[in-house]
Computed example of a mutant assay.
Amino acid sequence: MTNSITESDSFHNNLETKSVSELLQLIHEEDKKVLPAIEKEIPKIKEFVKELVMRMKQGGRLFYIGAGTSGRLGVVDASEIPPTFGVGHGVVIGLIAGGDGAIRKAVEHAEDDEDQGWKDILNYNPNNLDTVVGIAASGRTPYVIGGVKKARENGLLTGCITSNINTKLAEAAEYPIEPIVGPEFVTGSTRMKSGTAQKLVLNMITTTTMIQLGRVRGNKMVDMQLTNQKLIERGTRMILNELQINSEQAKSLLLLHGSVREAIDSYKKTKS
């Protein structure tokens, strides 16, 4: 078995003897290592996102594939894109080994099937405008490696996020992103620093992409879905601040047009 940073012994021992205060401080000290690790990877993330945006502007989709924590983080990021940016649910797709049931409860050996990742992607009729990002802290998850390999062989753009170096996953992907955060506080518990790094990189990829696709105006998510009262109030504030009208008018415009963008654009057209 090759050396693995994510499986290396924690720098901290005898954890059960430490106080709550000590444990919290030590976890915090380890978490501080995440941001510098990501900063080193920004040039790689930039090159990947530029390629991704080109394809998505032509109608391409973004797939995340992962297992366990990595898969769940991909599913979470994908599920937040439609309400935040107003795109369809089929634009960013999160796939997890073992299917949606594995989001809540681990499915035994699901990640060990090297063919299943690509099979799951095939359910969506992929094409060469699509992109696949494999997420695996270890960089050796068969489900993820197999999916990325087959995606690349079939002409899809491929990237990955892993917290180990010289991995099979990085070798399989065109654009490997490798934030090396070091051993976990609890040995091997990659839901901690590695998971935090994955979450931050996923945020960077999708947010930058959606901005490049025109889904943000200024610094506002003008295409967000109005799925609850909080978001209706947020949209109302955006409109009244932009148009300098009262709150009642702003809310009426928002509910009439269904989005901040449409409300503002329609109002300006009537005044021009």
Rank of each mutant, 00 (worst) to 15 (best):
I5V: 15
V92C: 03
C160N: 05
R140L: 08
N166R: 11
S189L: 12
T2R: 15
L253V: 03
S247N: 11
A78T: 13
Q25M: 08
N246E: 09
S10G: 11
L122V: 11
L156V: 01
I81V: 13
V133I: 15
R72G: 06
K150R: 11
K149S: 00
L23E: 10
T236H: 11
H109Y: 12
T17E: 15
M204I: 13
V133E: 09
G94P: 03
L213T: 02
M1V: 14
I180C: 08
K32C: 05
T227W: 11
S4K: 13
V75I: 13
V76S: 11
S266I: 06
P142Y: 07
A110H: 08
G235C: 14
L73R: 11
E29N: 08
G99V: 00
E111D: 05
D115K: 14
V92T: 02
S8K: 14
K119W: 08
I165D: 07
K149N: 01
M221W: 11
G99M: 04
I232E: 05
K50L: 04
T69V: 12
V34F: 08
H109P: 00
S272Y: 06
R152S: 05
L200I: 13
I264V: 11
I205M: 00
L129V: 05
Q116H: 09
R140G: 15
V260K: 00
I27M: 14
H257D: 00
V132R: 10
D115H: 14
P183F: 11
T6Q: 13
Y267Q: 00
E39T: 03
L24I: 15
T141C: 07
E248G: 05
V91Y: 02
